[in-house]
Amino acid sequence: MYKETNSSKIVKWSLIGISVIFVVLMLLLPLITVITEAFKQGFAVYEKAVTDNYTVKAIWLTLEATALAVIINTVFGLSAAWSITKFQFKGKKILTTLIDLPVTVSPIIAGLIFLLTFGRQSPIFPLLQEWDIKIVFAVPGIVLATIFVTFPFISRELIPVLESRGNDEEEAAALMGAKGWTIFRKITFPHIKWAFLYGVVLCAARAMGEFGAVSVISGHLRGKTNTLPLHVEILFNEFQYVPAFAVASILVLLAIIILIARSLIEYNGKKKV
């Protein structure tokens, strides 16, 4: 482009300076704070907090909810992407809008709607009680709320990729007599593999960290309906700062793994396309 003049150099480096200061202050420093606070009283205290019975239970519940959210959203995302990109039908626009709806809803409201649907004041509550099904203040509610807040994450990654590729290859395969599953496995999936993995990573990231929605629906029963973020909240509100940050450091570790996975997937995806 144009020659770098002295004044443009000043602009360049001051803009870079502002950006780096912003990133360090707003993003890096909070991350470092979690780690330093967690180890403030030495490794023994940290280890005790992380291996605490309630913490371990919270880890398992978080993993369970995350795994279920990823599985359900995978089934949904693949079905929705196939249905929306391979066929023409009325109401498609409304369908895509509805799929995107959950991300615009405040997490608190996401929790609230499940409370209203399955809670004490719901018309189906007596029915649920008769069959002894517990959803609100129990694990199923947490899972449902987690699925809700991550709902479009996988389909949203798949639909643009499938749309831009068109349907020629699938149509040819179908005309030559291939079954639906074979077409999907042999033709479609190789093209959407990276977009799919990317969606899974985003979904897992949000699912493990969801706080507001899960907080409303969980009832905060320690050792029963406490996920990792909720456990962090309880410890912090009890002024147990070191254990709170120790548990938070587990989530920081997971977040870093997710960021690395994300950039690896993005890198590989760009290379292959």
Partner: peptide, 23 residues
Amino acid sequence: VDGMIELPFALPTAVAGIALTAL
């Protein structure tokens, strides 16, 4: 720096909350 931008998407909000409060 580019990767760090994504941190708020990956870091659970509760963790960000207590870290920013302590800071």
